[in-house]
C-alpha cells in the first residue's frame, strides 16, 4: 500500500521544528509501524538526508522506550498496545499518517520524535522503591498476600513508564504513572512500611516537575498501553489523604 507520512522534524530542543512529508510507496500490512519507519530511514540515508530520530528498544511492548502520537492518538489507534506493537494493517492504502512527539512542557524535545522523560526518573527516585532490609530469599508462602491485592499490584506494576498518559492528557498530568508506582507498593506488605513517606515524597517530586494537575478526564486510561486503570489514581488520592491527615 501507499501512505503519506507527515513527521515532526526538529534538529534539537531549541530549533524551530516543522513537518516533513514523505511518500511511502511500498508498505506491507505485515510490517510493524517501526519497520515502516526503518524503511523510510534507509531511503533517507541513501539520499544522504538526515534519518528520522525516534526512540525504541525492545520492540515488543515491554521497555516503554517507544511512543509517538499518531494521528492524534498516543501509541496509535489501538487500545492496550505500544507503538512498537502497532502494525501497518491498521492503516489502508492512501492514508495520511501524522506522527508527532509527546508534547508536554515536562518532556522537553531532544530531536524529531524523541523527548526527554527524565522527569519520570526524578519522581521514581523520590520513593518508587522499597528500601527496607528484606533479608535473604524467603519461602514464597511466608508472607501471605490476598490474591486480589497481588493481582491489583501486578496490574499497577505493569506500567512501563512510557509517558503516553502525560502525552494524551489535556493538562500533561503524570497522575496515572505516579498512581501506578504508588499503588503497586501500597498494596504489598513490603511496600506498606514506607507508604506514607512514599506517597508524600513522590507527589512532591511530581509537583516539582512541569506536569499539570489532574482533572479526571480519563484520557490517560484510554491511551495507556498497559491499560492502567483510574482505580489507581483513586487509590493515590486515598494514599495522599491518609498520609496527610492520619
Amino acid at each position: 500500500m501507499k501512505v503519506t507520512l507527515k513527521i515532526w522534524r526538529q534538529k534539537d530542543g531549541n530549533a524551530q521544528g516543522s513537518f516533513g512529508t514523505y511518500q511511502m510507496d511500498d508498505v506491507s500490512g505485515d510490517m510493524s509501524f517501526f519497520e515502516m519507519l526503518d524503511l523510510l530511514n534507509e531511503s533517507l540515508v541513501m539520499k544522504n538526508e538526515e534519518p528520522v530520530a525516534f526512540d525504541h528498544d525492545c520492540r515488543e511492548g515491554i521497555c516503554g522506550t517507544c511512543g509517538v502520537v499518531i494521528n492524534g492518538r498516543a501509541h496509535g489507534p489501538l487500545r492496550g498496545v505500544t507503538t512498537c506493537q502497532l502494525h501497518m494493517r491498521s492503516y489502508k492504502d492512501g492514508d495520511t499518517i501524522v506522527i508527532e512527539p509527546w508534547r508536554a512542557t515536562a518532556f522537553p524535545l531532544i530531536k524529531d520524535l524523541i523527548v526527554d522523560r527524565r522527569a519520570f526518573d526524578n519522581i521514581m527516585s523520590a520513593g518508587g522503591y522499597v528500601s527496607i532490609n528484606a533479608g535473604g530469599a524467603q519461602d514464597a508462602n511466608a508472607t501471605p498476600i490476598p490474591k486480589a491485592n497481588a493481582d491489583e499490584a501486578m496490574d499497577a506494576a505493569s506500567c512501563i513508564g512510557c509517558g503516553a498518559c502525560v502525552a494524551s492528557c489535556k493538562n500533561s498530568s503524570a497522575m496515572l504513572f505516579l498512581s501506578a508506582k504508588v499503588s503497586q507498593l501500597a498494596l504489598l506488605p513490603q511496600g506498606k512500611v514506607e507508604r506514607k513517606e512514599r506517597a508524600l515524597n513522590m507527589i512532591a517530586a511530581m509537583d516539582e516537575e512541569n506536569f499539570g494537575g489532574c482533572t479526571n478526564t480519563g484520557a490517560c486510561e484510554v491511551e495507556c498501553p498497559k491499560e492502567i486503570s483510574l482505580v489507581h489514581i483513586a487509590r493515590l488520592n486515598r494514599e495522599y489523604l491518609r498520609a496527610s491527615l492520619a
Binding site: F19, V69, V98, E100, S168, K170, S172, G212, T217, G218
Partner: peptide
C-alpha cells in the same frame, strides 16, 4: 490557578489532537 498552571504544562500543542476520542466534552 489550576487552569493557568495547566496551560503552562501544555504550551506545545498537537497538530492532530485526538482528545475527542479519549475523553468526554464536559471534562475538557
Amino acid at each position: 490557578r489550576l487552569t493557568l498552571e495547566n496551560w503552562r504544562s501544555t504550551e506545545k500543542k498537537y497538530k492532530v489532537n485526538g482528545a475527542g476520542e479519549t475523553s468526554s466534552l464536559p471534562s475538557r
